[in-house]
Computed example of a mutant assay.
Amino acid sequence: MNDGILKSKYFTCSKEGHKPPKSYDPMVDKDSSKQRKRPTIRCGCRAQIFLKSMDGIKFEINEFVEGQYHAMVEEEDKHFVRSNRKLTHVQEVNIKVGPVKAFNILRTKYGGFEEVGASKDDCKNFKQRLNCFIGEFDAEMVVQRLSGKKCYDDFSFEYNVNDNGELTPLFWADEISKKNYLAFEFETKWLLIMKEYDLESNKWLIDMFDMRYDWIPAYYRDEPLSGLMHTTSR
């Protein structure tokens, strides 16, 4: 770097040099035996390219050292190389179901883990970065997203917050949901039927209508619904 202009670049092999030996002090590193020993890929490769530039825009090769004597990455292992591991936007959207489950879905979809283009750890890391980015502003992001849709004529959106500033009720409806509501407007049709057949004073029907929110749970009381349950606990 000269006067704020980058004038030289070095590119070396990922296997250049050697891993420095780790010193061991039995008085300090008492639990070192429990640490996982990671293998190293560095083997002292001397392959490198040295680039120089006068303006920091155009670079020329000033020195090239071939010096590579180790085997290259095998074809079946190329998907493990960092430059080949990247989640696409479509794959990132699937992470919302959980990183491990999302990876298994992608593995099945693409016909093998080597075709996914990312590893299970990449999915976990993306989920972690996403959670750190959202932080405590998940409700605020939802409100901002739905507020931006108010420019459409048939979109409705209302919400409330409690005394602690927490999002409590939230309601939104677009054009399709409004049309669906009109097609299945139960309460209106119920009242029309009661009036048509002069049943407006029938106590049993009045009581049944008042407990209408319990109809579906009662109807499916004997049906196993465990498949609809979802938990993130381990």
Score class of each variant (00 low, 15 high):
90 V>K: 13
90 V>F: 13
91 Q>S: 08
92 E>T: 08
92 E>S: 11
92 E>V: 03
93 V>N: 04
93 V>F: 05
93 V>A: 02
94 N>P: 02
94 N>G: 06
94 N>R: 14
95 I>G: 01
96 K>I: 10
97 V>Y: 11
99 P>F: 08
101 K>T: 04
102 A>L: 02
102 A>V: 00
104 N>M: 11
105 I>C: 04
105 I>H: 10
106 L>T: 01
106 L>W: 06
107 R>V: 06
107 R>E: 15
108 T>D: 12
108 T>E: 14
109 K>P: 00
109 K>D: 09
109 K>T: 03
109 K>W: 13
109 K>S: 10
110 Y>P: 01
110 Y>N: 03
111 G>L: 06
111 G>S: 06
113 F>H: 07
114 E>Q: 10
115 E>P: 02
115 E>D: 02
116 V>W: 03
116 V>S: 03
117 G>C: 06
118 A>G: 15
120 K>W: 03
120 K>Q: 11
122 D>K: 04
122 D>Y: 05
122 D>N: 13
124 K>H: 07
126 F>T: 00
126 F>Y: 15
128 Q>D: 07
128 Q>V: 00
130 L>A: 10
130 L>T: 02
132 C>F: 04
132 C>T: 06
132 C>H: 10
134 I>K: 10
134 I>W: 05
136 E>C: 05
137 F>V: 12
137 F>D: 15
139 A>I: 00
140 E>P: 00
140 E>Y: 08
140 E>T: 12
143 V>A: 01
143 V>G: 00
144 Q>S: 08
146 L>V: 14
147 S>T: 05
148 G>M: 06
148 G>T: 02
148 G>S: 05
149 K>V: 11
150 K>L: 15
150 K>Y: 02
151 C>Q: 10
152 Y>K: 10
153 D>T: 13
153 D>M: 09
155 F>H: 01
155 F>C: 04
156 S>Y: 13
157 F>L: 01
157 F>N: 04
158 E>V: 09
159 Y>F: 14
162 N>C: 10
163 D>Q: 11
163 D>W: 08
163 D>V: 10
165 G>W: 02
165 G>L: 04
166 E>N: 05
166 E>T: 05
167 L>C: 02
167 L>S: 00
168 T>M: 02
168 T>A: 00
168 T>W: 00
169 P>R: 12
170 L>N: 02
170 L>K: 05
172 W>I: 01
172 W>V: 01
173 A>G: 05
177 S>R: 11
179 K>F: 04
180 N>G: 03
181 Y>M: 06
182 L>I: 03
183 A>K: 12
187 E>V: 09
187 E>Q: 09
190 W>F: 15
191 L>F: 13
191 L>C: 09
191 L>V: 02
191 L>Q: 12
193 I>W: 09
194 M>V: 01
195 K>Q: 05
196 E>V: 00
197 Y>T: 00
197 Y>R: 12
198 D>C: 08
199 L>K: 13
199 L>V: 11
200 E>D: 07
201 S>L: 14
201 S>P: 03
201 S>R: 15
202 N>P: 10
203 K>L: 12
204 W>P: 00
207 D>M: 08
207 D>A: 07
209 F>S: 07
210 D>W: 06
